[in-house]
Design a binder for these strands. Structure first.
Lengths: 214, 214
DNA sequence: TAACAAAGCATTTTTGAGATTTTTGCGCTT
DNA sequence: AAGCGCAAAAATCTCAAAAATGCTTTGTTA
């Protein structure tokens, strides 16, 4: 699409929980942080609002959606449906290059996750983890021939992650077995076992949901 | 969401094929037609671009996506997956009010479609048909408890319809058996037959795809 | 003391103009 | 005649300021 730096940066902030649930976005402050004008900031708000990641309250500015357990559960279902459907086609079209890229993405993810696990407190690694987690799942689906399926998976993933961090803010979103679950997905994918991969993805998302919703 | 009149009007134009595939949108002309400023027009472009219904080419304005057969096929698949998944849950939660609303929506749709069938040339009822077709499918899913599933179905439906009219413009998108297919969906839904309803929806979308793609 | 109203303040939205970029048209060269 | 290059024109994007709206506070009255 486009690689608008402030646009990407703000989206990463939203997906990393830098802003609380229902918190209103202040154009002036964010504009100064990104060194752009308030109008350019507003354009980014408009676009993100069109993507469903921000809510525009008429004459009252923009705010992030509030963390709703039901919404999180619905997005989890949706993500499972779409990601499982796409990974099936991705595995059907797998090749050596894909295996290499997926292994590399998992290597990075595992490294960050082990650091996150050891650190105890999330700290400032969360944005990094948000990115590498996305890159892993994106790489997983990269050989799925349907661009639309991949595109909507991305939208749903972003929406899903925002909802997760809106529900639990900084703590607890990183489940205890996440590392093992990602490894299970990798193993099944490399082995070309579609059913095992679907199960691994479903469990991965379901466990996070259960963990977040207590 | 919001009931911005110019916003809705432009979206309906896009979904009705008032603008050709790849055609660039001229802010000044559209702004005058809707009696708003060029900046307000641009805000609507931004939002629609965020929804994926418009494409922004840097420093070259906005344009509608071009009609790509592969994209249409992908969106057809996606629509079938999501709409079938949602209709299953909708039927599980059906009640008398839903049956009444669905019958009413189908009645309107059948009336418009018979006029469209008789008229031969689409003419100016295409926007009307676009709306009642959407209202029928929306009503069909209205008792599905997952708001996210319904929301993403709407996005995909809008994207799908834009792609259809971008591919075939004004002629041919209205298949010969569309009336019978909608009636089959209605009958199966009222009867509570999930499997028959899924089949009817799948055939409905598949036949349109085959008809459009020759 | 509580409730209502009006004025002041802060924020958002819109407007209009300036600056940068792309496109178009014309003349020149090969 | 075709292709290249430069200049003019059109369009887009960005920016800063004005207008409109919502929120807060203060003052008055019951």
């Amino acid at each position: 699409m486009r690689e608008d730096s402030p646009y990407q940066a703000l989206k990463l902030m939203l997906m990393s929980g830098a802003l609380g649930a229902g918190e209103k976005l202040q154009p002036a402050i964010l504009a100064e942080r990104f060194s752009i004008s308030a109008s350019a900031m507003r354009e980014i708000f408009l676009r993100l609002s069109g993507e469903g990641l921000l809510i525009q309250k008429e004459q009252r500015g923009f705010c992030v959606g509030l963390g709703d357990p039901a919404t999180l559960a619905e997005l989890s279902d949706l993500r499972i449906i779409v990601e499982c459907g796409a990974v099936e086609k991705a595995i059907e079209n797998k090749d050596l290059d894909w295996e290499a890229r997926l292994t590399a993405a998992h290597h990075k993810l595992a490294h960050v996750e082990s650091r996150l696990h050891a650190a105890g407190t999330p700290g400032d690694i969360v944005p990094l983890w948000t990115r590498v987690d996305w890159e892993f799942h994106e790489t997983l689906l990269s050989t799925c021939p349907s661009r639309m399926l991949r595109a909507y998976h991305r939208k749903i993933y972003e929406h899903y992650r925002m909802q997760v961090v809106a529900t639990v803010r900084h703590a607890g979103f990183f489940g205890p077995d996440t590392i093992a679950q990602h490894e299970a997905i990798l193993t099944a994918a490399i082995a070309g076992d579609v059913e095992a991969c679907r199960r691994a993805i479903g469990q991965h998302v379901d466990i996070v949901r259960a963990h977040v919703l207590d």
